[in-house]
């Protein structure tokens, strides 16, 4: 069963990225090759953004990596991944065999890392990449690019010069003015903005055993429904700064969330933390959205989106 009315084309000038549905599995929550396929119906599936891939394989952070909070969670995975070479050799064929559209999420510590990753993506004819310039969980590197407009513009330009496909830049919310970052990405040659990455957070649990106190803490990126108001604010800000397509994320788990994000300018969506609660959420939401469009007499997702954007 396909969902014809959900076809989505993200477009900037001559470059575009076409997906079956505007609902995308967010990076870090869908593995490399859609390991969720035991749990979902792939026919209704938009695309996945792969786990963040670096040049070399990484083992990620030591110690506890997950901390649950009210309405969300904090993670400090630290970009554990197989590295680009193993991705191209082992994971890419699986994605192709499953016929899943995907966005390659890339991360690096230096501008040269990103340049090499962009070249490899280009040579491998990968249709879309999402540049992680905003991972809060690694000590050096990507967050620094992500928070300074000048270095972000320079980084985006370097990637643009080495990659001909659809270039998405994923922005950090850990900034005083996200509009400047959106403009910098656009000036550097980005085709699309995705936002928001996780917010910096600190989870603490103090326990008392009757005689002494102990403390557990995890510092990392906060995600889940608790960050939605922040994400909505940021998407509205980004929309006021650029006309590029926006892939919105941050606490999305239901149909009304999609409407809210469309109303501030989103063109597509990523689902992250909600996948951990309900592995079929991306396809469930796609079916629900498709049924809503059909039942209420809209032609397709594009028309629905424009109607919602027009609301004053």
């Amino acid at each position: 069963m396909g969902l014809e009315n959900l076809k989505t084309i993200l477009k900037n000038n001559e470059r575009s990225f076409e997906i079956k549905s505007p609902i995308i599995g967010a990076s870090g929550t869908y593995g490399y090759d859609c390991e969720f396929s035991d749990f979902i119906n792939l026919d209704c599936f938009g695309a996945i953004s792969t786990k963040g891939i670096t040049l070399e394989k990484r083992l990620g952070n030591e110690g506890e990596r997950i901390f649950e909070v009210q309405g969300g969670m904090i993670n400090r995975i630290g970009l554990e991944n197989v590295g680009i070479e193993a991705f191209i050799k082992e994971k890419l064929p699986i994605l192709k065999s499953k016929n899943i559209d995907f966005i390659l999420n890339i991360a690096g510590s230096t501008i040269e890392d990103y340049e090499k990753l962009a070249k490899i993506a280009d040579e491998s004819k990968i249709k879309a990449i999402e540049v992680n310039v905003s991972c809060p969980n690694v000590k050096s590197g990507c967050l620094e690019f992500g928070l300074n407009p000048d270095s972000l513009e320079q980084l985006t330009k370097t990637i643009r010069n080495n990659y001909k496909g659809f270039l998405i830049v994923k922005l950090s919310p850990n900034t005083s003015d996200i509009k400047l970052l959106a403009k910098a990405a656009e000036s550097g040659g980005a085709d699309c903005i995705s936002a928001i990455n996780t917010l910096r957070g600190l989870g603490i649990k103090v326990e008392f055993d009757g005689t002494k106190f102990s403390k557990k803490s995890v510092k990392g990126g906060l995600s889940g429904s608790c960050i939605k108001p922040c994400a909505l604010y940021m998407i509205e800000e980004i929309r006021s700064a650029t006309n590029l397509p926006i892939i919105a994320m941050g606490g999305i788990s239901k149909l009304s969330d999609l409407f809210e994000f469309m109303s501030v300018g989103a063109d597509a969506f990523q689902i992250g933390t909600a996948n951990f609660i309900k592995p079929s959420i991306c396809t469930d939401l796609a079916i629900e959205l498709s049924n809503f469009i059909e039942k209420n007499g809209f032609k397709n997702f594009e028309e629905l989106k424009n109607k919602i954007k027009e609301i004053k």
């Binding site: 786990k51 990596r65 997950i66 649950e68 995975i77």
Partner: peptide, 14 residues
């Protein structure tokens, strides 16, 4: 170990 996804994708419980 504390888990998030419980199916091997998030790398939270390594």
């Amino acid at each position: 170990k504390v888990m998030a996804c419980s199916i091997g994708v998030c790398r939270g419980c390594v």
